[in-house]
Design a protein around this nucleic acid. Structure first.
Lengths: 209, 209
DNA sequence: GTCTATAGCTGGATAGAC
DNA sequence: GTCTATCCAGCTATAGAC
């Protein structure tokens, strides 16, 4: 009586729809995603999508919010941890690549949707946590430079290096696979190798000269 | 009589359409681009688009082919030039970033369309020149390593570093602008700065240990 | 809550006049 | 070659039965 019928919220229709929507939107992007695809993926019909979420746009917003939150993850904790900057960078790179290996469609989705529809960032709250990550990152780099642990360098360059090296391979994955002939397993192995390489590259970049 | 009426091929309707299509497709992507948008951009009506190019798909193919050719450009010449590897890398990075500064929508367009429709690479000739660039790149790195000019390293890692560092900022540009508040001029200035930084990073990466 | 049926619109493609 | 008018498929969204 008190717990209602849904002891497992995972099998709620509403939740099923969200899971399906996340899968379809993230894989195909907003413009190419069809409500029919989402309904089929969720094992229901289109009408029910509109019953739970009024429109395609509202459903998309949910997915986008979820995805952009996942995009920067909870990396701030790693950045501000009590450890030498080298270690923090290693952990950050490792955590970010692990996340991306588990969400390989995520980066292209986020970057593509933001580009096609910039209001996604300007009008919504979505920008806030992104800004927060950037601010913490800049603060950490600036402080370390002040302490003489790293060299004087524009923190934005370090951020761009970090994001480029971690994220790009997943955005360019289809092209990379096409020219290299790598299998999915080989791609993952290469990205595992790159954790080391990327961390070393970043440490080299900020090392005092 | 012999030269017909079109002394300037640039004002041909057909060419106008191609220019308009390139602009609209590259900016919006295939799924979101409308034939109406292209017609308006070209200053004509939709029917005429179908008169010159049978369908949206055929028109898109033209644009995609053109864009993917531009994407790797004629960088092979720089790679195989008669100069120390450091210089060649500097020139390559500089040329690639210059190209991207002039075609800022290009990377997201190419990577997005390939992802949404992988046959674009598998079934068409488009893959060939991409493969060629990769093969030359791998050969050059391997040879330099054999000569002892650089260290032993998987050339694919070097290629991924290069592509990541050069291309990603343009794919992530809207997000970067949103969190940093940079103006278009400031973004360009940062990318100019990065030419140096990226070249140094790559040289550091391959330097003998 | 879940379904079927259908309204209503958008957008690619074609017919036919000029 | 270029236009207007129109067809038709595909898609979002809603009405209404159960």
């Amino acid at each position: 009586m008190s717990q209602e019928e849904n002891l497992q919220p995972e099998v709620n229709t509403e939740h099923q729809i969200l899971v399906a929507a996340r899968k379809v939107f993230t894989r195909k992007g907003y413009a190419a995603a069809r409500m029919e695809d989402i309904a089929k993926e969720a094992g229901i019909n289109r009408a029910l999508l509109h019953y739970y979420f009024r429109s395609k746009d509202r459903l998309f917003e949910m997915v986008f919010d979820e995805n952009i939150r996942k995009f920067y993850g909870s990396f701030i904790g790693i950045l501000t941890a009590d450890a030498p900057i080298d270690i923090r960078i290693r952990n950050l790179v490792s955590a970010e690549i692990d996340m991306l290996l588990h969400n390989q469609d995520l980066p292209l989705f986020v970057l593509n949707e933001i580009t096609r529809n910039p209001e996604l960032l300007s009008t919504r709250i979505n920008l806030l946590p992104l800004r927060e990550f950037k601010q913490v990152f800049v603060r950490v780099i600036t402080e370390e430079a002040a302490k003489g642990n790293i060299r004087q360098i524009n923190p934005l360059h370090v951020l761009l290096h970090l994001m480029s090296l971690c994220v790009f391979p997943f955005v360019g994955r289809p092209m990379f696979v096409a020219i290299s002939g790598a299998t999915p397993e080989q791609f993952e192995a290469i990205m595992e190798e790159r954790k080391q390489l990327i961390a070393e590259t970043l440490i080299q970049l900020i090392k005092p000269r």
